[in-house]
Amino acid sequence: MPEAEVVYSDVKFARGKKGANEAVTPSTDSTYSEIKISKTQPSTAELSDSPQQAVVSKGSKVTSERVVLVVLSVLLAAALIALCFTTFDKSRTNQELENLKLKKTKCESNLTETLSKIKSCSTVQPTCPGSTVVDDPCYKCEEGWEQDGGKCYYFSISKSSWKQSRDECRAKEGDLVKIDSREEQTFLERRLRDVMTRDEDKFWIGLTDSAVEGRWVWVDGSLLDQSLKFWSGNEPDNWKGRNGEHPDGEDCARMGAKGGADDLKCWFDAFCSKPQRSICEKSEVKGQFKKCDFTALYSRWFYVSEEQHFAMAVSSGRVIVDDEQQTFLERRMRNIMNEDDKFWIRLTDSAVEGRYLWVDGSPLCKRLDF
């Protein structure tokens, strides 16, 4: 730092005079020679730098505070934005909930209206318009009996001896079955495949040689036709038991093969006292039914579901009982069916597989098997 010099010139200092009472001394003047006093002063650069440093220090402090303030402002803005979005989402969710409630109310209202319309439909089957009683062209079987080839068949569930089984068939106004043709044997053999629970679960038929050994006779007294014998393998073998406990041998015939029989041969002789199921047989009977104007009937009582294109014909008796009704329904179906649509009729074999019955309990007439 440069030094500044101060120069003082010769300076004379005169002493003052004392009072009168004081002794007078010769005055003496003091002279000071030139004096230099060096004084250190800050440089111009330093003088100029110091304020700048102060300003920089102050500015640095101010800038940090601003950064903190900006960050806090940004965080506050983000929080406000998040709060706004949350509020908006909640509002939208509440609105959607209200919309769903409105839809639910509307659906319930529509359902109530639809149900009221359905309930308004009468569940009572209407009577046939203009009906007349005519002879039924079809032969029928009683409930529980199966129809085939002009005969009615009953396949028992319980087991009993051959004689007791025959008594039970007679109590039903029939008798143990007599097989008169290959077609009848075919029907029975195939039907037993379905009703048998296991291979030993065979059925008594009305054939026996209990009167004369080897002379097989049907229950109606007729001899077995030698061209209509369906004995299996080496049957009949008249087995008398392992220890001969059945001296009379096997004198009664039973039939059935759960897995099917070669050439329909499924007859076996057995001890007549052995409990077995049985096949009863009797003739068909004719009946009567009410004939209607079915064009008017089905025009009034035919219902088609709009949603499923699914229909059911409803009548006071059986749905299809003659050619006229079948023709009417078949033509009607052409107009309302899609390619894969089918329609329920009141015919089922849910009780016994293969034995189709109308809902009034009457069997399907083979002449009207469409």
Rank of each mutant, 00 (worst) to 15 (best):
A296D: 12
F302C: 11
S43P: 09
M337Y: 08
M196W: 05
R332K: 14
F328P: 07
S305C: 15
Q326T: 00
T105L: 11
C169W: 01
Y32R: 06
D89Y: 10
E353Y: 14
K163D: 11
Y154D: 01
Q288K: 13
K103W: 08
K36C: 05
V124K: 08
D10G: 00
Q164P: 07
G149A: 01
A14H: 00
Q308T: 12
K18I: 06
L80K: 02
P363A: 05
G144Y: 03
Q41V: 05
E307I: 08
C280K: 01
S227Q: 13
E168F: 01
T63N: 11
E324K: 10
I205S: 05
W162H: 05
R332T: 12
G16N: 08
A45W: 04
E146M: 05
P363D: 09
T132R: 09
D49E: 13
G174Q: 02
W231Q: 04
G233W: 05
E146K: 01
L97N: 14
Q276G: 06
I37Y: 02
D340E: 14
S273P: 00
G249W: 01
N238L: 09
C107V: 14
F88A: 11
L368E: 12
W267G: 06
L297P: 04
G59P: 02
D148P: 02
S210R: 08
G259W: 11
G149K: 00
N21T: 10
T123R: 10
L228N: 14
G16A: 09
S33G: 14
Q52V: 04
A23G: 10
Q52P: 00
E113F: 08
K18D: 15
V7D: 13
K291F: 03
K172P: 02
P26K: 15
D180Y: 06
S9V: 02
E245S: 10
K282R: 13
E250Q: 09
E3N: 10
T63Y: 11
K274I: 04
T123M: 14
W218R: 04
R346G: 14
T295F: 14
L357Q: 10
W344V: 03
E245V: 06
Q52C: 01
K104Q: 15
N234H: 00
P363I: 02
T25K: 11
I35C: 08
A4H: 09
K163C: 03
A77R: 05
S181E: 10
A351F: 11
S350C: 10
M1L: 10
L83G: 11
W162N: 04
T197V: 12
S181H: 05
V7F: 13
S210E: 15
E235T: 00
K58G: 11
S43Y: 04
K258F: 11
P126K: 01
K58E: 15
C141H: 02
F88R: 04
V71D: 14
G249S: 01
F343K: 07
K290R: 10
K103R: 12
R242A: 15
V6C: 13
E183I: 00
D293Y: 07
E324A: 13
D349F: 07
L176F: 02
F230Q: 05
